[in-house]
């Protein structure tokens, strides 16, 4: 039982780390980024590439790959999503989906379709620590927990107190007024994409250390999306809660029903939420009319 709780918390932390990216981009630019899962996967592949071609050691490789992802996120905005500013919702969503499809194809062409283990390449130790009498948590899982907590603290701090964070909130609320205040919207949006891709890639990188990387990693990213929506697409607190709910349901489904159900349960929760409280637990109701 304790082990199940640990599993829920670790899975919840993974989802939360990914979901923060959906929330950030949506909150700042009202775009739903359905390529987030693929960008997260790309982060893991960047780690793989770093591990094979540069001698950085484990920590260095993780940091390098994550920083590369920061750059990737900004480039995605500058070269792709910038064209979609002010376009219809469907066009923007489809653009992100198309970009995701492109990334899937590209990653198979570059790294092949087999499963890779960057953790082994970097000889990340496979240790686990006992919790209480009957439960264990792996070293990587602990790292995920720590990174998620630090990321959320940093994001809260940025949005609350940072000058750029306040500008991000301003852009999300009223892009016209933000531009009239002399804020360059493109800079803010690019920043949001960079940070969002960074945290998403961190999740992908850390998960790949334990379970490896292949195309299926993107699916985890897609499953984190219901978590973001259940909590409220424009709320970070909501993303944390939604992630825990989805993780708990998924762990319970694997344990008591069938592993097949695990992949669909986030979407069942999503539908239930959309039927009763579509703006999510912590989201703002007005969001429904904005889209």
């Amino acid at each position: 039982m304790l082990q199940l709780l640990v599993n829920v918390i670790v899975l919840g932390a993974i989802y939360a780390l990914i979901a923060s990216g959906y929330v950030l981009i949506y909150r700042v630019s009202r775009v739903l980024n359905l390529a987030h899962g693929e960008l997260m996967m790309l982060g893991a592949y960047l780690l793989l590439q770093t591990a094979t071609s540069l001698a950085f050691g484990a920590t260095g490789a993780v940091a390098f790959a994550a920083l590369m992802s920061l750059l990737v996120g900004a480039l995605v905005y500058v070269f792709l999503m910038r064209w979609m500013t002010g376009q219809a919702v469907l066009a923007a969503v489809l653009t992100t989906i198309s970009f995701g499809i492109f990334l899937r194809g590209l990653s198979v062409l570059t790294w092949g379709s087999q499963h890779h283990y960057p953790g082994k390449l970097l000889s990340v130790p496979n240790v686990s620590f006992p919790i209480g009498a009957s439960a264990f948590i792996s070293g990587v899982s602990l790292a995920i927990l720590a990174v998620t907590i630090v990321s959320y603290a940093a994001l809260f701090g940025l949005l609350r107190f940072g000058r750029w964070g306040v500008r991000m909130r301003a852009c999300g609320q009223n892009p016209l007024l933000a531009a009239q205040s002399g804020i360059n919207l493109h800079t803010i949006y690019a920043l949001a994409w960079a940070i969002s891709t960074f945290t998403g890639a961190l999740a992908g990188i850390l998960v790949s250390l334990e379970t490896g990387v292949s195309g299926s990693l993107a699916l985890i990213g897609l499953k984190a999306f219901p978590a973001a929506l259940v909590g409220g697409l424009d709320s970070l607190v909501g993303a944390m809660l939604g992630s825990l709910i989805v993780a708990a349901a998924e762990v319970a489904a694997i344990q008591y029903v069938s592993p097949l159900l695990a992949d669909v349960i986030p979407f069942v929760i999503l539908i239930v939420m959309l039927a009763f409280r579509p703006w999510g637990f912590f989201g703002t109701r007005e969001e429904l009319d904005r889209v």
């Binding site: 792709l80 064209w83 979609m84 066009a91 489809l94 653009t95 198309s98 970009f99 995701g100 499809i101 492109f102 990334l103 899937r104 194809g105 590209l106 198979v108 062409l109 379709s113």
Partner: peptide, 16 residues
């Protein structure tokens, strides 16, 4: 994979 990547690109080109 080529098909995927190319499809993504064509789709993006049309959308933009």
């Amino acid at each position: 994979a080529v098909n995927y990547a190319a499809f993504g690109v064509v789709m993006i080109v049309f959308l933009i």
